[in-house]
Structure formats: structure tokens, C-alpha cells
């Protein structure tokens, strides 16, 4: 049986991963396999890990405000690896005004602080390609 496999990634330089860990645990409790790679990942590292692990979902979390650059960079590199079906989502402190551009760049959905983790689980279940 196929399990949904998710890479929870922390791009950028901010030093907090509490949010990412909460999400990781919620996804595990929903029955997903969650690969967690720790803080301060470059887009190149995230894409390489996503491909090696052959994940279905890349979930990025970012607090530093570097999302306009980093999220699209991850999308581009993940697609270049040949992962055309992987669902790519983002979360963190992201102004509403930035969201359309991120979606335009290929981030499927953006979750802002306060989103119940259950919503993220449901979103993944509904949109993942297995």
C-alpha cells in the first residue's frame, strides 16, 4: 500500500523550527511518512532530498520573509529533478498580498499562521497525486 510521503523543509536562515515540527507531528499522526531535514536548507538541498526520498509533497515553512525568492526557487529546482507531480505547499508568516505571486510560481497552497494543522492534512489528502 502506498503511503503519502512528505518532505517538511525549512529553507532560509531563520532559526526556529517549532512550527515545522508541529506540522511534522500532525502529518505523522495523520498516517503520513514525514522526512524532516532540519533548519537552514538551501533550495538545492531541499530539491535533492525531495528527489532522493521520492516524496509526494514538499511542505516548506518560512518565517524570515525570504519566501518571494525561496519558495519559487524550490518549485523550479524540484520540477527540474523530474518531479512533475509533487505537490508543493508553503507556510509561515506570509502577507496575503504575496500569495498570488507564490501561487503563480507553482506553490499550490499557502498556509498562514493559525491555520489548524487538520486543514493542512485535509488539503494534502485532497490534492496529492498518488
Amino acid at each position: 500500500m502506498d503511503k503519502i510521503k512528505v518532505l517538511v523543509a525549512k529553507p532560509g536562515l531563520d532559526g526556529h523550527d517549532r512550527g515545522a515540527k508541529v506540522v511534522a507531528r500532525a502529518l505523522r499522526d495523520a498516517g503520513f511518512e514525514v522526512v524532516y531535514t532540519g533548519l537552514r536548507q538551501t533550495p538545492e538541498q531541499i530539491a535533492a532530498a525531495a528527489a532522493e526520498e521520492d516524496v509526494d509533497v514538499v511542505a516548506m515553512s518560512l518565517l524570515s520573509g525570504a519566501h518571494p525568492h525561496l519558495f519559487p526557487a524550490v518549485v523550479k529546482l524540484v520540477r527540474e529533478k523530474g518531479m512533475k507531480d509533487a505537490l508543493i505547499i508553503g507556510g509561515g508568516v506570509i502577507p496575503d498580498g504575496d500569495i498570488p505571486a507564490l501561487k503563480e510560481a507553482g506553490v499550490s497552497e499557502v498556509f498562514t499562521p493559525g491555520t489548524p494543522t487538520g486543514d493542512i492534512v485535509e488539503y494534502i489528502k485532497a490534492h496529492v497525486k498518488k
Binding site: 507531528r25 505523522r28 499522526d29 498516517g31 522526512v35 524532516y36 531535514t37 532540519g38 538541498q45
Partner: peptide
């Protein structure tokens, strides 16, 4: 054993190898 899910955290120690 409850959810069947897992947190796979070994890469945290191996990030230098990824590239």
C-alpha cells in the same frame, strides 16, 4: 503503531551529503 505514520529524521545529521 497508532497512525502508521512516521517522522524520518536521520537526514538532519546528513545534510552535508545531500548535494
Amino acid at each position: 503503531p497508532f497512525s502508521g505514520g512516521a517522522i524520518l529524521g536521520d537526514r538532519i545529521r546528513m545534510n552535508d551529503l545531500t548535494l
